[in-house]
Structures are given as C-alpha cells and as structure tokens.
C-alpha cells in the first residue's frame, strides 16, 4: 500500500507522520493522533458528525484523505475550549441543552464555529440552513438552533 509522509498542525500542535494514501482524515485524527472527539456517523458525507476545520473551512473529515492535508492547519473539537474554559459556542450548547447523547455535537460545534465567523448576526432561518447538513437524532435541532443564536450573541458581545 502506498505511503506518504505528511506534516499537519492540529489544534496548534504539529505532527509528522507517514500514512497510507487511502487513510481517511477522520481515521488519521482518531486512530493515529488519538483525537477521538471527531465522530463518524455515516462515513459517506451526509451526517456531518465528522466535521472539522481545515485552513479555516468546515470540511467532512470522512470524505478527505489524510494525505490531502499535508501542510494544513486543522482545528478539531478538542481545540475549541481554552483549557477547561469552554468556547462560547460550547457554553451556549450547555446552557440551552443543545445536546443529548453528544455524538453529533462536535460536528455541529465545528460547523457553527466557521459559520458564525462568516455571519456573526444570523437569523433563525440562516442558522437552520447553515446546519442543515448536520444530522442529530436526539434533539430535533430546536435547542441547537437556540444555542446557536445565543452563541452568536455572546461572540458578538465578546468581540465588541
């Protein structure tokens, strides 16, 4: 099996590894770097549970190969909080009961992380649209949408 050496920065730490070219980015993060916060709900690009941030953009790590991120800057759910201090989006999910089993949650958090930087003051329907590619089987999304609005508010307050 063909191998390739890659160098990636994940949550501020740089890793140099050799990977099989067919290894998915999700498996690389989870199994090679032990960053198991990124979850796999379908492995065919529909559920969004595996969403992470690559060079500032939300991507589905089940649909990318590790070899494709050579030289990239990655952010995963493990890198969102500042030590034990939750990121405002995490804080809002906690406050508004935006998670139940928590399996889909990392994907929602990372999707919203990117979306709220582009659109700091979204309407409810913009939020619904932004997370329409993430599936959650527990919450019916209602509290996720509420949490996203609240997070947008606190991020704006923090920025000003």
């Amino acid at each position: 099996m063909k191998q390739r050496a890659i160098r990636v920065t994940v949550n501020g730490r740089t890793h140099e590894r050799t990977v099989e070219v067919r290894r998915t980015l999700a498996d690389f993060l989870r199994d090679d770097l032990d960053l198991t916060g990124t979850h796999l709900g379908c492995e065919h690009g529909v559920c969004g549970a595996c969403t992470i941030v690559v060079n500032g953009e939300a991507v589905r790590s089940c649909l990318m190969f590790a070899a494709q991120v050579d030289g990239a800057e990655l952010l995963t759910v493990e890198g969102l909080a500042d030590g034990e201090r939750l990121h405002p989006i995490q804080e809002a999910f906690w406050e508004h009961h935006g998670l139940q089993c928590g399996f889909c949650t990392p994907g929602f958090l990372m999707t919203l992380y990117c979306f709220l930087r582009e659109q700091p003051d979204p309407t409810e329907s913009e939020i619904r649209e932004a997370i329409s590619g993430n599936l959650c089987r527990c919450t019916g999304y209602q509290n996720i949408v509420t949490a996203a609005r609240a997070a947008a508010g606190s991020l704006r307050a923090g920025a000003s």
């Binding site: 989870r30 199994d31 960053l35 198991t36 916060g37 990124t38 979850h39 796999l40 995963t76 759910v77 493990e78 969102l80 909080a81 939750l86 995490q90 999910f93 906690w94 406050e95 009961h97 998670l99 928590g102 399996f103 949650t105 990392p106 958090l109």
Partner: peptide, 21 residues
C-alpha cells in the same frame, strides 16, 4: 438544571465505544 455530563461531551473528551482501544 444544566446537565452535569455535558462538559466532557462538548470538549470531545467523552469515550464512546469507538474510542476504546
């Protein structure tokens, strides 16, 4: 009351079956 189980779930620290090695 806010859920006490949430912080590890939110931070990607919870261990699901797939995370057991």
């Amino acid at each position: 009351i806010k859920r006490v189980e949430d912080p590890p779930l939110l931070m990607g620290k919870a261990r699901y079956l797939s995370d057991i090695t």
